[in-house]
Amino acid sequence: MYESEPPFSLEVAQQPAASIRKRRKLPLKRAGEMGIALGYMAPGLLLLGLFLFYPAIRALWLSLSTTDLDGKITGFVGVAQYRLLFTSPAFWTSLRATLLFAVIVVPSTLLVAMGLALLADRELPAIGLFRTLFASPMAASVSAAALIFQLFYNPASGVLNDLLQHMGLGPVPWLTAPGWALFSVALISIWMNVGFTFLLLLGGLAQIPRELYEVADLDGISPWQRLTRITLPLWSPTLFFALIVTMISSFQVFGQINILTRGGPIGATNVLVYDIYRNAFFNFQYTSASAEAMILFAIVIVLTLLQFRIGERRVFYR
């Protein structure tokens, strides 16, 4: 792991920093610099402390307590909320919907983005324009995307049913049938994710040394072997990173569900974050919602650590 630098590393950041690190021996600490340093870190520490660390701990505490309808803690109950959740069929339905959502979104996003990246990884005239257009869905907000797709899914004048009709296929109840709704909201995420994932994977491809391909071409290697023997192995750190990032964002899906299906029909799209939202802000069940939030937190942490352990060390920013 250490000897062979992953082909796709923090190009902007890590390489120059690593080469400079030896020269950058800062003068030994003086007590005076601690005060200055604290001053510089103060805005960040204050904001992170008040609105990130403190609420994270408070959420954990809430999940172990009981509260009144105002969210005031009235008692400590230990893991009772978690036990209640794990025996509640509604929670498992919600967790299953979330997993199913991820199962639909993650592989499709990766495959589409891989195809697009392979297609655009060639220096051709006007390729920059195509790359920007391929990345363009990342500019879309979840509300804009949800509203556009709502127009697509419209039963009367929707685009998708119109196109299906031209192909001689019957209308699909996109958002109204429990069997279709999750797929329909997942399609929105796939479209939104593709832009960013494409850019990420294209960056990964650009890190693969071109000489490898030239040597392989001299050896008369077939395009398929080129892909499986050179591209995929050297691409894999980026692919793994993209996999984790897409998984994490799939577990956090909320916007289009609130806008289009509100968890329905009959709970088919009641994913974890939507369930947290309903429980906390409509049913005032702050404690069980906090327990659910902690479970989501745990899932995200596990996925992040997996990326740190198995993949290279890279940072996440949400």
């Binding site: 969210g71 994490i248 702050y286 937190f297 940072v315 996440f316």
Partner: peptide, 17 residues
């Protein structure tokens, strides 16, 4: 480490604050 904390984990206490 703050990058590992999903916003959903902190929204309830932040809302109460």
């Amino acid at each position: 480490a703050t990058m590992m904390i999903p916003a959903e984990a902190t929204i309830i206490p932040n809302y109460l604050t």
